[in-house]
């Protein structure tokens, strides 16, 4: 249990630092086309242990969100998205639960859960997170076009980064 705590704490700081120091500064702008943003910290929520109490997941989502917010100068925006994602993660885990249930106490990984399960699980969470984040950022569905465009392109960009992260660090548990 303590090793899981350490691993997740490290992941928390690693992803948050990467987000605010590297990916915050990366921006692809081609004229008016500014729809690509990299959000990698949702991976922290994705990788939390499956059996972790859900209120705690939500609280940790809030925590990493507010941490990122401190550097984005947008108090609450990432935090609300983190809260939402933490809440949605529980529902998605219920939805994607295998027939015999989850037989691991550790983090969901490609090795333990299989690549197709992990892909659908992480892409749903990332997509929901991005859509919620951009909705809250725009704060009005008047900008639905921008919200959807941002979500689609940022999803592709962020998902590539997440897969690269998993390839590089290869979390086993």
């Amino acid at each position: 249990m303590s090793s899981a705590l350490i691993r997740n704490s490290i992941r928390f700081f690693l992803l948050a630092i990467m987000q605010v120091l590297i990916f915050k500064r990366v921006a692809f702008n081609w004229g008016d086309f500014a729809f690509i943003h990299f959000l990698v910290y949702p991976l922290f929520i994705i990788m939390l242990p499956i059996k972790m109490p859900r209120p705690l997941v939500i609280f940790l989502g809030f925590l990493i969100g507010i941490f990122v917010d401190l550097f984005y100068d947008s108090p609450g925006v990432h935090a609300s998205a983190g809260v939402f994602t933490g809440y949605a993660r529980g529902l998605i885990l219920d939805l994607l639960e295998p027939y015999e249930g989850y037989n691991t106490n550790d983090s969901p990984t490609i090795e333990t859960m299989g690549i197709s399960w992990f892909m659908s699980y992480s892409s749903i969470i990332l997509g929901l997170h991005l859509f919620y984040y951009f909705s809250v950022e725009a704060f009005s569905f008047v900008y639905i076009f921008e919200i959807v465009m941002n979500t689609i392109f940022s999803f592709i960009a962020s998902f590539i980064i997440l897969m690269l992260y998993l390839l590089i660090f290869r979390p086993k548990r």
């Binding site: 109490p53 859900r54 209120p55 997941v57 939500i58 609280f59 809030f62 969100g65 507010i66 917010d69 947008s74 108090p75 609450g76 925006v77 935090a79 609300s80 809260v83 939402f84 933490g86 809440y87 529980g90 809250v136 950022e137 704060f139």
Partner: peptide, 25 residues
Amino acid sequence: FGSHITFIFLTIFSFVLIVNYNQTQ
């Protein structure tokens, strides 16, 4: 109902933050 309560509480809290400290929103 812990997850629902936490979710609602923290969402309200972050929206209070958003509305109070973000000029655009």
